[in-house]
Structures are given as C-alpha cells and as structure tokens.
C-alpha cells in the first residue's frame, strides 16, 4: 500500500487550495492512504479544513511556535522525522513546496520529482521540462521514499464531504536557529478571485505601456469576474506586481478562460497557460506566436478592442 504524506500549505488560518489539488494527485495512486500534515503555531482551523477534503484518510498536526512562519529550514527536519513509515511525501508545487521539499528530499537522501503532472503508477510520474516542451516520464525506485511536488494546474481540487480523523503528532527534531522570519508584504487583499485558482483570468502584457493603462485589464477582469495576470515584461516594467506573473517562472494556471491582452506568447509565458480550457488572444500583430495556441484570436488594437468587449458584456 502507498502511504502518502501531504504537507499542507496555509497562511495560519486557511488551507491553500493547492493542497486539495495535491490530494487529487495522491488519490490517483492505486490503494493510496492519504495523510495531510499541518505544521502551524495553532493548527486547529487548517486541520479542520484538511479533514473535510474527500479522499483524505487522516490529518496530523504539529503545533509549535517555531511553525508560525513557514521556513523551509525549520520545517524540513520535522517533515523528515514525520515521514518515517510513509512511502511518499508530497506538497504542491508552489513557492512553499518548491522551497521546502527539495530540502526534505536531500535530508532523506533521495531525488525529487518536481511538478508531477500525471500519475502513471505509484512510483511513475510525468513531469514537464524545457518550459513544457518535453514531457518526461520518470520512475523512482519503490524501495525508497518518493518525494514529489504536484503541479497544481494538472489536478482539480479534491471535493469536500470527507471526515478524516485529526490527531496531534509528536515530532522530535532539532530545529536550526540560523534562519529567521522578518516580514511578509502580502499583496493587498482584494475581492478578485485568486490568480492561481480562478476560473477566468485576464492578463496584460508589455503592450499596455503604462501602469495607468493596465487599469483596462483590471476593468475587463472586473466585468468578467476574472483574476488579473501579467506577462513578465508587464511585471518588469512595473505595470503589475510580481505575484501576478504567469509563466515558467511565475504561476502555472489552468483556468476555464484565459484572455491574453497585448502579450506576444513567448514560450516562457505559454508554458504557464497551456492547460487553460479556452485561450483568447488580443494582439495587433497577426504573426504573434500567442495565436498558435489561441482558441479565439482577435487581431486588433487592444485600446480599441478591450473597451468594446466591456461594452458588449454590459
């Protein structure tokens, strides 16, 4: 049997949806027994949220003041201590998971499978390389613990309705003092859907040409009930903040609808949106590579077309 430990991602109060997606991946392993581990200062709320996910068999909590902020150096030895007896350790392939799991894998002395996108067997997974242009099937040895991060865009979040037991785990690990949390400047809270999990996303590129102009993107997104994203060029130019970047080095997303406004479609950007169900591209250059992946392409000046779309939706 596969005993899978998933490290919960949370902000101290809410469970990140990416963890529910990792549960779906874990459940695709035949005969999986799925445990979610919640490391927190006060894990109760997050543990309750994890326990109701369908397909979760158990939730274990590790409460400690040291776990008040997610620092990989502090969490990794605790994960290693907890991992004894499990066959797999998973986390979502988010900035949290990418920071933590390789540290865990190295401490365990095993390689890691990053961005697992399809389950081919208990020890066999597909993952993207070369910005998604080459999909590799990897097989890990079955006699060792398998550490993997799960590509969120490839799995739907597990549904609710579960009722896993919650228990406190006793983890004894020596924690380092060499890494200290200072501050988190989070993006201002907004009523907009979260980019990583939104059903619809409107993204703007370099063509927006200024931070003020980028408001057109926000305005269309509001009209559609969509999250806002951006290309790297738009982020670098300061039109949009960095956590909105979509692509190889930003967020990999799979919304129902992705609208690319004034984005050329560089491979690094496309890898972030390839799993979107429907892609719309608005670009004035008919040769722009974004049109190769767009389901609906509109060759037009965005400053004319976008307000028109908004009007048509009113």
């Amino acid at each position: 049997m596969s005993k899978i430990l998933i490290i919960a991602e949370h902000d101290g109060s809410a469970l990140n949806q990416a963890t529910a997606r990792a549960v779906t991946c874990a459940r695709q392993i035949p005969g999986a027994h799925v445990t979610i581990a919640v490391f927190a200062a006060e894990p109760a709320a997050v543990a309750s949220a994890a326990a109701v996910l369908a397909g979760v068999d158990a939730v274990v909590t590790v409460a400690s003041a040291a776990n008040g902020h997610a620092l990989a150096a502090t969490l990794a030895p605790q994960v290693v201590a907890l991992a004894a007896g499990y066959t797999h350790v998973f986390a979502a392939s988010t900035s949290f998971g990418k920071d933590l799991l390789p540290r865990v894998a190295a401490l365990l002395g095993v390689p890691q499978i990053s961005d697992a996108m399809a389950v081919e067997g208990a020890y066999k997974f597909k993952r993207p390389t070369y910005a998604g242009n080459a999909i590799v099937t990897l097989e890990a040895p079955a006699d060792r613990i398998l550490v993997a991060t799960v590509r969120s865009a490839s799995f739907e979040p597990a549904a609710g309705g579960g009722s896993a037991s919650i228990s406190a785990a006793d983890v004894s690990a020596e924690l380092p003092t060499h890494t200290r949390f200072v501050s988190l400047s989070a993006a201002p809270k907004s009523d907009r859907p979260d980019l990583a999990s939104a059903a619809k996303v409107v993204s703007g590129g370099r063509a927006l040409a200024s931070k003020e102009n980028f408001d057109i993107v926000y305005s269309l997104a509001s009209k559609m009930g969509a999250a806002v994203g951006a290309s790297r060029a738009a982020v670098d130019a300061g039109y949009a903040s960095n956590e909105l970047q979509v692509g190889q080095t930003g967020k990999i997303i799979a919304p129902e609808l992705y609208v690319a406004v004034g984005i050329s479609g560089a491979i690094q950007h496309l890898t972030g949106i390839k799993d979107a169900k429907t892609i719309v591209a608005i670009n004035k250059d008919p040769e722009a590579p974004i049109f190769e992946v767009a389901d609906f392409g509109l060759v037009a000046d965005l400053f004319v077309a976008v307000p028109e779309i908004e009007k048509a939706l009113s």
């Binding site: 095993v110 390689p111 499978i113 066999k124 993207p128 390389t129 998604g132 242009n133 080459a134 999909i135 590799v136 099937t137 990897l138 097989e139 890990a140 040895p141 060792r144 390839k274 892609i279 008919p286 049109f291 992946v293 767009a294 389901d295 609906f296 392409g297 509109l298 060759v299």
Partner: peptide
C-alpha cells in the same frame, strides 16, 4: 540516484483555434 527516465514525449498539441 535511482531515478529512471522511461521516455520523453512532446506535449499534447492544442486544437487549432480560429481568428475572429
């Protein structure tokens, strides 16, 4: 380190879209 590459394949192509 025991990790074996079984095979490498191109990504599934997206269905051809239309220009409106």
């Amino acid at each position: 380190v025991g990790l074996k590459t079984v095979f490498v394949e191109p990504p599934k192509p997206r269905a051809k879209g239309i220009v409106v």
